[in-house]
């Protein structure tokens, strides 16, 4: 696909920024209006988690799209990546506020005894250095190490998916759907890697 931009890039950037913040803005509005039901924490946890997963899938879609000819896609991948980190951070903050009540002892207990909490927390931890090194300056300074560091996104994806699967109680439908999407996106990379190795 030839990207013959009729729109200037900043316009599309604005659009992407808007799209990225929309779910969070909508959730905040609904929260302020009391439209999230009697247990808003549960809804917010679920929705921020799901938007983070969708965002992750889009981040991983950038490389195949670039390969298909849209080189400009990487400009927006960064915004998307930082957005994912933002949503996961909100998710984590909610957990601390509503489920742990900011008790250090309880947080340690949760991390020790509940593997899905540990796995989710590790996913956030593995995204942290990526968010911190998302500036142009950091990228220049890290040079070729930047790419290796940012492969952590694969680990974060696996952890996030495991976190989702572990939370399913009786219906694994959602975990299966995300599993297939992630398998396709990671499988594409594996295939390319093998082809190049040959």
């Amino acid at each position: 696909m030839q990207h013959k931009a009729t729109l200037p890039p900043w316009c599309l950037t604005g659009l992407v920024l808007g799209a990225c913040s929309l779910p969070l803005v909508l959730l905040a509005t609904q929260l302020a209006r009391g439209q999230l039901g009697p247990d808003p924490a549960e809804r917010l946890m679920q929705d921020t988690g799901e938007w983070a997963l969708r965002g992750l899938a889009l981040v991983l879609l950038a490389s195949p799209l670039a390969r298909a000819g849209w080189r400009g896609v990487f400009r927006y991948r960064r915004i998307l990546g930082v957005t994912v980190f933002l949503y996961v951070s909100v998710h984590l903050l909610l957990f601390a506020q509503v489920y742990v009540g900011w008790s250090g002892a309880l947080l340690i207990e949760e991390l020790k005894e509940r593997p899905y909490v540990l796995v989710g927390f590790s996913a956030w931890l593995s995204l942290l250095p990526l968010a911190l090194t998302s500036t142009d300056k950091a990228r220049r300074r890290l040079g070729r190490h930047w790419r290796s560091l940012h492969r952590l996104i694969y680990l974060a994806t696996l952890l996030a998916w495991l976190h989702l699967l572990w939370l399913a109680r009786s219906d694994v439908g959602e975990a299966v759907v995300y599993g297939l999407i992630f398998a396709a996106l990671l499988g594409w990379r594996l295939r390319r890697y093998r082809q190049r190795a040959r």
Binding site: P38, V98, G101, R114
Partner: peptide, 23 residues
């Protein structure tokens, strides 16, 4: 006795809110 995936020592007494979780 905790559920393996979460603690049973507290509960959110509904309706709950973000700033006052009513835990």
């Amino acid at each position: 006795v905790d559920h393996p995936r979460w603690s049973q020592r507290f509960e959110r007494k509904l309706p709950s809110s973000i700033f006052k979780p009513n835990r």
